[in-house]
């Protein structure tokens, strides 16, 4: 069976018949590793994150990296043109990607990107929102839920103040932004299911 990992993080998403599944998987791993490292560096700069236990830091990052990357790369999804630009710089049409097996997940990613982009967040707002997404006490396996919860609450307060400051006339903007979090969870679950279908036996 051909393996096509049509992920925006993948530098070589096309079918490569001469490569073994193991080699395809290793190439993919090399493609997304720098992005994961950037997420870890970002987390280290969240005030209070490094004070959490190492296990809780790892748990938050394992659970939230996809969501952070989804927020960060929402701009790669061009809703108007119905295209996705991969980190390699190559642009693929929605139809081409669907042909590679990216069905429902891709539609939901486009839907999310459109809604997030419509909020026209500043870089600062986007960064703080991403921190709120990452520091979520309800991730499975958190040991010190209270510490993570307190940190997330302080980040949410800061985000609320920032969003209110940049647009005092639109009180719903902050609420709309927080409502993107359950959308991200849904996407994360769909992405996990997709990944499991590619598992190496």
């Amino acid at each position: 069976k051909d393996i096509v990992l049509a992920c925006p993080m993948n530098m070589c998403p096309q079918d490569e018949p001469n490569k073994t599944p193991q080699e395809i998987w290793e190439d993919f791993s090399l493609s997304f590793t720098p992005a994961v490292r950037e997420v870890v560096e970002f987390a280290k700069h969240i005030p209070g994150f490094s004070a959490l236990s190492e296990n809780d830091q790892v748990t938050l990052l394992k659970a939230g990296t996809f969501e952070v990357l989804m927020v960060r790369f929402a701009s790669l999804f061009n809703v108007k043109e119905q295209t996705v630009t991969f980190i390699s710089g190559a642009t693929y049409s929605l139809e081409a990607l669907k042909g590679m097996g990216m069905g429902g997940l891709l539609d939901t990613m486009f839907e999310f990107s459109e809604k997030l982009n419509s909020l026209e967040l500043t870089a600062e707002e986007l960064g703080l929102f991403t921190a709120v997404v990452l520091v979520s006490a309800d991730r499975s396996g958190i040991e010190n839920i209270n510490s993570v919860d307190l940190l997330q609450e302080s980040l949410i307060r800061a985000l609320r103040a920032l969003v209110s400051k940049s647009d005092p006339c639109d009180a719903s903007r902050f609420t709309k932004l927080l409502l993107k979090m359950p959308d991200l969870r849904t996407l994360n679950n769909m992405h996990s299911e997709k990944l499991l279908s590619f598992r190496i036996d």
Partner: peptide
């Protein structure tokens, strides 16, 4: 692999990055 993060080797990458593993950095 029962969870996708393990499937990707994500935990290993994260732990190394958290520790500031210099061996894997370009410089």
């Amino acid at each position: 692999f029962s969870d996708p993060a393990s499937n990707l080797g994500l935990e290993d990458i994260i732990r190394k990055a958290l520790m500031g593993n210099l061996e894997e950095r370009p410089e």
